[in-house]
Amino acid sequence: MTLSLDPTPEVVDYPFNRPDNLELADEYAAIRQGPGLARVRLPFGEIGWLATRYADARTVLADPRFSRAESVTHDEPRMREGRQTGGILSVDPPDHTRLRVLVAKAFTVKRIEALRATVKALCQDLIDDAMADGAPTDIVDRFALPLPVQVICELLGVPTSDRPRFRAWSDAALSTTSMTADEYQASREEFRDYMRGLLAIKRETPTDDLMTALVAARDEGDKLTELELIDLCNGILVAGHETTASQIPNFVLYLLAQQGSWKRLHDEPELIPAAVEELMRLVPLGLGGGQARYATEDVVLGDVTVRAGEPVLVAIAAANRDPEVFDDPETFDLERGRTPHIGFGHGAHHCLGAALARLELQEALAALTRNFPDLAVTEVDWKTEMVVRGPKKMMITW
């Protein structure tokens, strides 16, 4: 790939990664070692910048000079025709702060840690059921998906039995298929109608869950609108299971490719938390950069001046391999120590469920390495046309 440092650099097609593996495309390192930013063209929307260096990524994600709310008034660069407007990911402080505070109490480290025994038991139950049926088994369907689905459904107050229904809407929300803007919006409205029905039930029969607490914040405190309430619950439901369900099999594949790593975690389970942090740093979940931030004034990033009104996408996976921050960044190192990766984002939009995701990933890896020291993958069927990468089916033996 040829890069230019002139005032009008060439525009390259994006994303670079392929959906059928976990590799990070070489183009990211070329950009990071060059100007740091590149002009990129996604399938839909306007041309934008792509930030690949760690320092630039943190600036775009946290500096108030970069706005998510501005995306609503622009033709945001994106992977699909339909646009995701509204919701907590499309606003800036103070509106973002107002919505986040309503949910944050349910996701504190202390509250999440109190769930560890429950999550550990659920992991073992799922594995016991799979082992009882014998090998081979699909680790996605039997373990990676039901684990976070059951946990987030219980926290939020959604019937786990509705999984097939909201799974379809979740897939549509993260899809990059040829679904038209109208079809995308129709799917979104169906999902909203489903959540309206659940919220009506919570109003009639309150229960001890996050959805009931949010209903009270809406009805008693008038702290959010009805649409904000609906979109917030839908966002939590999708984000609360999809990323973890994808990363569990991704982590298994990555570890098996690192000679001796799987056996070491079986023999030394105390290394599991460190392994999760390294895997979050090294395994690129997204097919490409995340949601664009718009510069509200001219900002210098690396060797490039981003003009006011221009969008910037952040390549988190490239930033997490920046040699200016991480020694020997391409190596999986269980002795790395503190890892300041941005796998869960950074700034105001840092992943609200990071503590929950960490717990689920830790307990999932602990259970899998403990029960399947000789685990082997026999078949992988990758997700396609999705903004996240990972197996939709992965058969294992033990």
Score class of each variant (00 low, 15 high):
T212Y: 07
I47R: 03
P136Q: 09
L37F: 06
V312Y: 00
Q258P: 00
L237E: 01
Y28K: 13
A69E: 04
R281H: 02
L198D: 02
G353A: 14
I396L: 07
Q247P: 05
L255G: 02
E113S: 15
P94S: 03
L285Y: 03
A186R: 09
T212W: 08
L199C: 03
F16A: 14
W382R: 01
D327H: 15
E360A: 01
L3I: 15
E113T: 13
R218N: 11
P9N: 03
L282Q: 01
P15F: 05
R338T: 11
A168V: 11
F372N: 01
A181Y: 04
P273Y: 05
E220S: 12
T378Y: 08
V158M: 02
D171R: 12
M280H: 08
R188K: 11
A114P: 07
K392E: 14
V238R: 03
A319M: 04
I88P: 00
A308H: 10
F326L: 04
R307L: 13
G48F: 00
C153S: 02
S187F: 12
L22H: 05
V12A: 11
S178G: 15
D128M: 10
G290K: 03
L359P: 04
E189D: 14
P373H: 04
A239P: 02
L356G: 04
R53L: 06
P148K: 06
Q362S: 09
A295M: 09
L285N: 06
